[in-house]
């Protein structure tokens, strides 16, 4: 069964080029992980004692300010970083969408890029050819697919990347912020597809600063702070604690109905 089991995992980055002396004055700020100084090579403790278990069907949001370790955690979950201490067991086919520029060739066409991205995700050319039509339809890029990628807007790139990862039936979908660049209509479509995908076989972890996206895609959430898991619970609880207000306060009744939540009736906004 698809699952990710992380137990007491640490991710420490050695910083080889920095002078250890200057770093010994502990650089501890609001931004970034802790910088340890025990060993000779200065180390940035990007993730500290993470224990997390994500199961099939889970849709987890990652929140936290810049440098809190969201992206690092996503990479730990994808297997790119193996924990320096502790363990991370990843069971299932991973499809990450992190940086949209990486692994994409600006000069070749959208079609070719679909192929290449598919190859990266462990598909064969033949398997991808079968999916191309489906991707073309989903992304609505049409004739643009035969244009070189450099003519694409950011939103179009996101569409392409999402089209590919959702077409290959991945079991573990990891999305970093950045997919917010698409328009609302497409986002709705993508949401349905992603939710459907998670229902079928997989799990989703999504890092974002946009509440509305998190509300659309996730059910539970993890709050990262200075490389630690500060909180883990239902999305609503976590967002409430993180933002200091109920995330459902400002959403429209339609959205609330679609998401299947009861809009909180607060004294100030109750009359809406």
């Amino acid at each position: 069964m698809t699952s990710i089991e992380v137990r007491n995992a640490y991710v420490d980055f050695p910083i080889f080029d920095a002078k250890s002396r200057s770093l010994k004055k502990k650089v501890l700020g609001k931004v970034g992980g802790r910088i340890g100084t025990e060993s000779k090579v200065p180390v940035i403790e990007a993730l500290h004692d993470i224990t997390l278990s994500v199961r099939s069907g889970d849709r987890v949001g990652l929140v936290g300010h810049n440098g809190a370790g969201k992206s690092t955690l996503l990479r730990l979950l994808s297997g790119i970083y193996e924990p320096t201490r502790g363990t991370a067991l990843i069971d299932g086919r991973v499809a990450p969408v992190f940086d949209l520029g990486v692994g994409m060739d600006q000069e070749i066409s959208g079609y070719e890029n679909i192929m290449v991205r598919g190859l990266y995700l462990g598909m064969t050319r033949k398997q991808m050819e079968k999916r191309v039509d489906d991707i073309a339809e989903f992304t609505e890029l049409g004739d643009y697919l035969s244009m070189p990628l450099r003519t694409y807007s950011t939103g179009m790139r996101v569409r392409l990347a999402l089209g590919v990862v959702t077409s290959i039936d991945p079991e573990i979908l990891l999305l970093d912020e950045g997919i917010g660049a698409v328009d609302a209509r497409f986002l709705n479509k993508a949401r349905d597809r992603l939710v459907d995908l998670v229902k079928r076989s997989g799990l989703l972890v999504f890092a974002s600063h946009q509440d509305d996206l998190l509300l659309e895609l996730c059910t539970s959430a993890v709050w990262m702070d200075e490389g630690r898991m500060k909180m883990h619970g239902s999305l609503r609880e976590v967002l409430k604690a993180y933002k200091g207000k109920d995330p459902y306060e400002n959403i429209s009744p339609q959205t609330a109905a679609r998401l299947g939540v009861e809009k909180p009736v607060s004294a100030s906004k109750g009359g809406e």
């Binding site: 224990t51 278990s53 994500v54 199961r55 069907g57 987890v60 067991l89 898991m229 883990h232 239902s234």
Partner: peptide
């Protein structure tokens, strides 16, 4: 909502 799946310290989930 999916319930929190953080295992308590003693609980062996894996």
């Amino acid at each position: 909502h999916a319930t929190s799946t953080v295992p308590a310290a003693g609980e062996s989930v894996a």
